[in-house]
């Protein structure tokens, strides 16, 4: 792999993802675990940028970091016991096995797709100089009856139902 800006950025973001993910799993302090979740999500957003999907990267930051992770932090701030005495339980052997199987499956998929030489596995140019046709295409696809109009509306309806349900549960009377 040539050493250039993209490689450095990829290494950095990948390390953020893996390190952050590891932190979520092993840190005893719940608040620190949530902060490392933020780090992992930020790394994923960076990877989306490298994959020429800036829109997805921004939505990742906005939804996952700006809303969901903040909600998690908010809840942790209101809990009594922030330090978990023992983050591991007896199922860690099973968990490690499951993780290994998943990793193996991923490797097999990548190998079948052509290994490390496949064109889409090569580093992508950083912030490509393209018009925002990608966003425009995404937008028109979402309201195109032939494409994703129905799933999009169903997802919207589902979210509305969830919102109404949450409010009706939270109401005191």
């Amino acid at each position: 792999m040539p050493i250039n800006l993209e490689t450095i950025a990829f290494t950095l973001f990948a390390a953020m993802c893996v390190g952050g993910g590891l932190g979520v799993a092993v840190l005893r302090n719940l608040f620190h675990a949530a902060l490392s979740l933020l780090l992992a999500l930020f790394g994923a957003a960076g990877l989306f940028v490298l994959l020429s999907a800036p829109f997805l990267a921004m939505v990742q930051i906005l939804v996952y970091m700006g809303a969901i992770a903040i909600l998690i932090l908010f809840v942790i701030m209101l809990t009594q016991q922030v330090i978990v005495p023992e983050p591991y339980n007896r199922q860690w052997v099973l968990g490690a096995l499951a993780a290994l199987v998943a990793l193996g499956a991923l490797f097999m998929v990548i190998a079948q797709l052509g290994g490390g030489d496949a064109p889409y596995l090569q580093p992508q140019p950083l912030a490509p100089e393209v018009s925002d046709s990608g966003i425009a295409a995404l937008g028109s696809d979402l309201v195109d009856p032939g494409r994703y109009l129905v799933p999009f509306e169903v997802a919207g309806l589902l979210l509305t139902v969830a919102l109404v349900g949450a409010i009706s549960i939270a109401r005191e009377d």
Binding site: F55, M58, V59, G66, D132
Partner: peptide, 13 residues
């Protein structure tokens, strides 16, 4: 090309 969205997501950080 996602500048406005970038502003919103960064300020939420």
């Amino acid at each position: 090309n996602v500048g406005a969205l970038y502003f919103i997501s960064i300020s939420s950080l």
